[in-house]
């Protein structure tokens, strides 16, 4: 911890911090295009099958979806607070607790999501496995649920990575590992907020469409 020298390719710690931030931002730009491909597919098929998409999205569990949105937004607030405390060179234990709360809320999200998946399966909403729907709207509805599972599934994979990362950082922060090097916390925060932001797009697309009006 006392050893606050930059890695050998850097001239200074400032440069190292800049590089780490820039790296995460470029990575997130790449991630945006990754999810962009999915959003494009969703958009195309929603235009093709407006009724099927509207009918299908009323079958998703809006209560659990909304609870999960609140859970994830709260986790981001804790993450943001953790980054602030770290930047203000506050106590490592406080940072550790905030990150732990973040990771636990992430786990809670996955738990709720898993419950939803079980419920969806029970309601015969899994394309390719067990899908029953009004024949007239079936094509659009099936595409909707396919995209629903792919989008939320890939989001859950990202969230799992975030939970592992933030959980590990919580332990290290508690032990005071980031006393001199704050950028890992801030960078994990960028990633966490991005995963949260993806959900902010998925929530209206998957849960609210067809429920308005």
């Amino acid at each position: 911890m006392a050893d606050a020298r930059p890695a050998e390719q850097f001239a200074s710690l400032d440069q190292q911090r800049d590089v780490a931030h820039a790296g995460m931002w470029v990575f997130l730009a790449s991630e945006t295009l990754f999810f962009g491909g999915l959003l494009a597919a969703y958009t195309v098929y929603r235009i093709w099958y407006p009724e099927g998409f509207a009918a299908a999205s009323t079958k998703t569990d809006v209560v659990l979806g909304t609870i999960n949105t609140a859970v994830l937004l709260t986790s981001s607030a804790l993450m943001g607070a953790g980054v602030r405390v770290a930047e203000a060179r506050g106590s490592g234990r406080a940072v550790g607790l905030l990150l732990l709360g973040t990771a636990l809320l992430g786990l809670a999200f996955l738990g709720v999501k898993g419950t939803e998946y079980v419920k969806d399966a029970h309601d015969h909403l899994v394309p390719g496995y067990d899908f029953e729907f009004d024949e007239r709207l079936r094509r659009g509805a099936e595409l909707f649920f396919l995209l629903y599972f792919i989008m939320t599934g890939i989001h859950a994979v990202h969230l799992t990575v975030g939970i592992l990362l933030v959980g590990a950082f919580a332990v290290r922060a508690w032990r005071g590992a980031f006393a001199d090097r704050l950028e890992p916390v801030a960078i994990a925060g960028l990633y966490w907020h991005f995963v949260d932001l993806v959900w902010v797009f998925l929530y209206p697309l998957l849960y609210l469409n067809g429920r308005a009006g």
């Binding site: 470029v26 730009a29 790449s30 991630e31 295009l33 990754f34 999810f35 962009g36 491909g37 999915l38």
Partner: peptide, 9 residues
């Protein structure tokens, strides 16, 4: 960075 993820998805 911006094209490859679209191929991935």
């Amino acid at each position: 960075v911006l094209g490859t993820p679209v191929l991935t998805i």
